[in-house]
Write a protein that binds this DNA or RNA. Structure first.
Lengths: 126, 126
DNA sequence: GGAACTGTATCACTGCTATAATACAGTTAC
DNA sequence: GTAACTGTATTATAGCAGTGATACAGTTCC
């Protein structure tokens, strides 16, 4: 079952979007596989300390995207199709990079400075 | 006067935070200088197509941080102190990088892949 | 001095996020 | 079959973000 280890709540971003993002990034990374069981809504809400309705909202959204399949009474599970990963990768990376690069450019950073910053920060977090 | 050229509204982020971020990044980049005049609340709200109260909220917040000085009746202007820029640079870069690097790592990317992605994206946006 | 600007303040309203408490229906496992 | 889980649905509440309209006080400039 998906553990949600290392999941930390962030400010200024809706919780349901953070949950959706966590699952999407996990699928891209291969740590979440097709057929994997999601925690139940109630269990995840207890794990994260948020309301069950908030979790339900993110699950419903993931189901609309075809990434999760639910049956009343049974556990929900992940659905990863043939072209799911490339599409998600493009979506996630594109958005992150766009935000990031635009911010760095507006701060007056060069491409070399940006890469150096990434490199040094990468070590610190390791 | 600060032009707010190239400012584009983004989804899922409060507008007043986007305005604050734009000013902060401009100060770090040196495109916004000590003493520069801010557009009036009404003028900027018209330029961005948002409500004057939303702009007022961001200006009030910038004033609390000591980055903007306002006098009733006169134009507000930017205040950049001796250690403002390093502090802002640290704040902005740290937050952006943290979010970005964590997302990339969770997606299973290596440091080399991350830097390559930055590099290729940088060109596209140029 | 007066017109046109500036900042400041207040009220009401909508929509979204999140919480809270239930209720009902279907499944899984013993 | 029954208990304990699952998903689903409903209603109510609170707070924040954002819009809209309006009013008042101080400035700048002719």
């Amino acid at each position: 079952m998906i553990s949600f280890d290392g999941f930390v709540l962030e400010d200024n971003v809706p919780i349901y979007l953070q949950i959706i993002g966590y699952v999407k990034r996990g699928i891209v990374a291969g740590s979440i596989l097709d057929g994997d069981e999601m925690p139940s809504r109630r269990m995840l809400s207890a794990m994260l300390g948020v309301n069950p309705n908030t979790v339900q909202k993110s699950y419903a959204w993931l189901e609309e995207q075809g990434l999760v399949q639910s049956r009343t009474g049974a556990k929900s599970c992940v659905r990863v199709g043939r072209d799911t990963i490339p599409a998600l990768r493009q979506e996630l990376l594109g958005h992150s990079l766009k935000t990031m690069v635009e911010a760095m450019k507006q701060m007056g950073m060069t491409r070399e400075e940006a890469q150096a910053a990434i490199a040094s920060f990468w070590e610190v977090e390791e």
